[in-house]
Structure formats: C-alpha cells, structure tokens
C-alpha cells in the first residue's frame, strides 16, 4: 500500500526521468542535423570532418567491401584478452601487496613512477620484443592499463574493514579464508568500478597498439583512412569505436547488476 505522497513522489520522479531522456535524445538528433547541414554547406571543413550521411554510406561500404566485422572482431579480441590479462595480474599483485606489507612499501615509489610514465613511449620497445603481431598490441594494452588497475585494486584491498579481518582472525581463519571471505567480497563493488576503468584503458591501449603496428583492426582502419585521405572512413571507424566502447561498458554494468 502506497500513500498519496508516495504516489505523488513516484509520478514526479518518473516525469523527471522522461524529461532527462527526451533532452538527451533531442541533443543527439540536433547534433546530427547541424553536423549534416554545416557539412553539406561547407560551413565546417567537410573534407576533414565529413558529414553524417557520407559517414553512414562509408560505414555501409566498409561493411560490404572491407570486412568491417572482421576488423571489429580483431580489435574486440585484443581488448578482451588484454582486459583479462590486466585484471588477473592486478588482482594477484594487489593480493601480494596486501599480504606483504614490507614488499608493498619497497615497491611503492617504483609503482608510482611507472604509473606516471606515458606508456606509449614504450611502444617501439614492445614491437621490437613481441614482433609486429597481435601479441605486441595486447602487450601494449596491458601495459597501459595494468598499473592503474593495480593501484586502484590494491588501494581498496588495503581499506578493507580491519574489524572484519580482526574478527576472522579471532576465529583462526587462514590467509586464504580471509581473502576469500573478506578481501574479495568486501571489495566487490570497487573491483567492478576498476573493471570499468580498465576496459576503456584496454581499448585505448589496443588502438594505440594498432596505430603502431597492425594489418587489421579498427585502429588500423583509422590509420589507413588517414593515409589515403579518406576522412569518411576515419570518422566511420571512430563511430564504430564509440559504439564498441559503449557496448563493453554496458556489458560490465550488466555483470555488476546480475552476477551477484
């Protein structure tokens, strides 16, 4: 049974939601509309930015002639692999840092240092050591995302409620049990939000890797489009990238909502 006030509250919050959604959609269509108008009438330099209808037809031709799905698949594979590797490494390293306090203190300045280094600078090194292959792209993506991940995850491990750990210890819990019952589940939310950051960093890393060396993937399409001055191709690839990153984010959000 809801009271009158509660019903009123529900109606009000629903109306608010509708207003927000409609404005979001409106902005999207206005953007497309003006982009198209300005592009066609050369108010903006359409050679560089292209315009929606041209981008759309270029998307279609990409799909038909250039095997777009194949390129998406390659990039997606690299992103997901690097995401998995990144997070396995980060969780293991964070656990080690959590368990061995002295070790944590020893490596702390080094971690901070590496974390602030622009990892792209290491790109050429990676290509030399891994060769011009998928593995060097994955290595690039892992390198870009893993230190941030370690920092966030190990920080939240360190902030696990001490009174809960104390309680478990008072029942003679083993280290494994403390990790299993407290460290991981108590930080479940934080780990997922770190996933959200690392998936986008992996996408960034993958594209950078593809810029540096590749024969396929969405990053390659962008690079290729630039080299042949086909800006519609570049814009279309960027749109594909946008959609990909949105989908990846939504997948993690779905996991967050339904997997516990």
């Amino acid at each position: 049974m809801s009271s009158k006030e509660h019903l009123l509250f529900l109606r009000k919050s629903k109306r608010n939601k509708i207003i927000i959604r409609s404005f979001q959609i409106l902005i999207f269509f206005l953007f497309i509309l003006f982009y198209e108008l300005f592009g066609r009438n050369n108010i903006i330099n359409s050679f560089i930015t292209s315009y929606p209808s041209k981008i759309f037809s270029s998307l279609i031709s990409l799909f038909i002639n250039n095997n777009l799905l194949f390129h998406i698949f390659i990039t997606l594979k690299e992103v997901i692999l690097s995401f998995i590797i990144t997070n396995i490494i980060s969780i293991i390293v964070s656990l080690i840092l959590f368990l061995f306090n002295t070790f944590d203190k020893i490596v702390e300045p080094y971690l901070t240092m590496i974390n602030s280094l622009p990892k792209v600078a290491l790109g050429p090194l990676i290509i030399i050591s891994f060769g011009s292959s998928s593995s060097s792209i994955i290595a690039m993506a892992v390198l870009i995302s893993v230190f941030t991940s370690i920092e966030t995850i190990s920080n939240c491990f360190k902030n696990t409620s001490t009174s809960i750990i104390k309680m478990l210890k008072s029942f003679n819990a083993s280290t494994i049990q403390i990790i299993w019952y407290a460290i991981i589940p108590c930080n479940y939310k934080n780990i997922i939000s770190s996933f959200k950051i690392s998936i986008s960093l992996c996408l960034i890393g993958t594209i950078m890797g593809e810029f540096l060396s590749s024969k396929s993937g969405v990053g390659y399409l962008i690079l290729y489009g630039t080299q042949v001055f086909n800006m519609s191709l570049v814009m279309a690839s960027i749109i594909v990238l946008l959609i990909m990153s949105l989908c990846l984010y939504l997948i993690i959000k779905y996991i967050e909502k339904h997997l516990i």
Binding site: S161, S163, I164, K166, M167, Y181, A182
Partner: peptide
C-alpha cells in the same frame, strides 16, 4: 565478540 562492529 569485539567492541567494534564486525559484520559483513
């Protein structure tokens, strides 16, 4: 049973 609350 500790003084601080220690429930999950």
């Amino acid at each position: 049973m500790t003084q601080e609350e220690s429930l999950f």
